[in-house]
Amino acid sequence: MKILGIESSCDETAVAIIDSGKILSSLIATQHDVHERFGGVVPELASRRHMENIVPLVSGALQEASMDLDDIEGIAVTNAPGLVGSLLVGISMAKGIAYSKNLPLIGVNHLEGHLNAAMLEFGNVPTPYVGLVVSGGHTSLYFVEGFGKYRLLGATRDDAAGEAFDKVAKLLELGYPGGPAIDKVSVNGNAKAFSFTKPQFSNRTLKGVTPREFDFSFSGIKTAVLHLYKKQNDLSKKFISDLAASFQESVAKILVDQLIAAAKTSGAEAVVISGGVAANRRLRSLLKERADTEKLKSFIPSMEFCTDNAAMIAYIGERRLELGDKSDFTLNAVGNQEIGI
């Protein structure tokens, strides 16, 4: 089925067309340039940019797939989670097209898109697998039995990994987005220069929280970096790159340790990562290395499928529609929404 997918939950506007899981076109307009100045996504700017970008992107995606709207058989759109104002731009566009062309509309959860992004590249991932979605807003680990069958095994209790990257990068004056900035400067740093204590939940269980076995915490590491930075008198290039590299190593290790441990405990066949932070080179190489040692199959999508894109949204839309599942025109934007709970 030819499905047009629309994604506008954060700072990328993206439109893609897929047919039977195959990508016919996938376009992304990034807003990193406008948000760089503020060290993060500015919501009002973000929704305005989405509005400017979305129509040209839909036309461009159709053109690249050599189609017009009459060829499209369904419209999939991200409706949760994200910035409500930004989500609404995509949802309004999707409803407009679906209504005028009398097409089925499918609301898609952004996290479910990420969790299945590997399918676009590898065609199939053996189930059950454990998938980690790690980005600026999310750090969640899922047990995946099959399409639509997800169980949340753990999630961050405070900051998302990508948020810690952004905040540390801002502190070290490395720019935005923080992930690529830290990735770049870490190449010249000594990842063993500083060590950070691994978050321990067993003896430090937060009150009022029912822990999941594979939860994460990144607030402590962020604060530890802050203290090292404040204590240092000579902020040399070497100090900054050593600190960045050590921070990155520590975050990558926490993520990979949890992912591997969850896979082994749950008897999964494979491990999968996705989300903006999954584009981090150290995380990718460490996961590959550890998965190979543990004899687990690893599926690490190309950068373009890790970061936000609309192909993964269209993919979910197609699978849903095949199952006869669609949304009605009351579909609305939801800021916070988990899956697998």
């Binding site: 999630a155 209790r157 900051d159 998302a160 948020e163």
Partner: peptide, 24 residues
């Protein structure tokens, strides 16, 4: 997190940094 605990927010609801989401 302490406020949530005292207000009897269910323990399955995680209180996280809203930096990315802006509102939790």
């Amino acid at each position: 997190q302490g406020l949530a605990s005292a207000l009897d927010i269910p323990p399955t609801v995680y209180v996280r940094s809203p930096t990315f989401a802006l509102i939790n």
